[in-house]
Amino acid sequence: MDNFGFVNRDMAINVLSRLPTKLLLGLKCVCKRWHQLLCDRDFTKVQSQKREQISGFFFQQRFHWCPYDIRTIAYIPAEFVGLNQTVFSFLPEDVVVLASCNGLVCCRSCVPCNDPAIYVCNPVDREWIKINWSGPDRDSYIALAFDPCRDAMERSINFKLVQVRHFEPTLDNLYFSFEIYSSDTGVWRMSKEICNCNDKLYKNKGIFIGACIG
């Protein structure tokens, strides 16, 4: 028995893909067939192409002059009063949220720590991967690029991280270098591009536009 109730699988997909992602998480426990369907990448693809209202925000505070991170990440829903601090509890350690892009979130270990790492995770299916990383420094920033709909045939999800670092070889001369991590190769690579810019542009976070990070 299919267990889609009054409708068939296609119609279940048609109805469910119109719902916001957060509600679909709760509906995973309707029955086994729905659980399977809602975890299916083909379904996620259909659903992520529909426009969705913002369900809420992640909020994390930072000390300005202190080497210790604040470990609490709060999820603040947009449509009702509430607060939830367990969204990232599936990760193996406390983290600081750095960037997000089309459903993936990039975090780093809280400092101080012995083995700093970057985690790229999906809070919806609670999957994550750990990426080796040199650790935080004052002169760099991480941006995340991910487009789940870019490649219609490709079922694996690939993302890229860009670490932008600024340096001043001489006074009045500010440069940016770019180190890129690609999930399909699994390595960091230094870009040959260097950007010379005499205005302090950095730390404005990365913005993913089409296929580039600005």
Binding site: N3, G5, V7, K22, L25, C31, W34, Y75, T86, R126
Partner: peptide, 22 residues
């Protein structure tokens, strides 16, 4: 939808706990 729940209470509780914030 007229769907019958085919999870055991334990399975359902586990999925609920995983997605508590939803």
């Amino acid at each position: 939808f007229g769907i019958e729940n085919d999870f055991t209470p334990e399975e359902e509780a586990r999925i609920r706990a995983e997605n508590e914030w939803a």
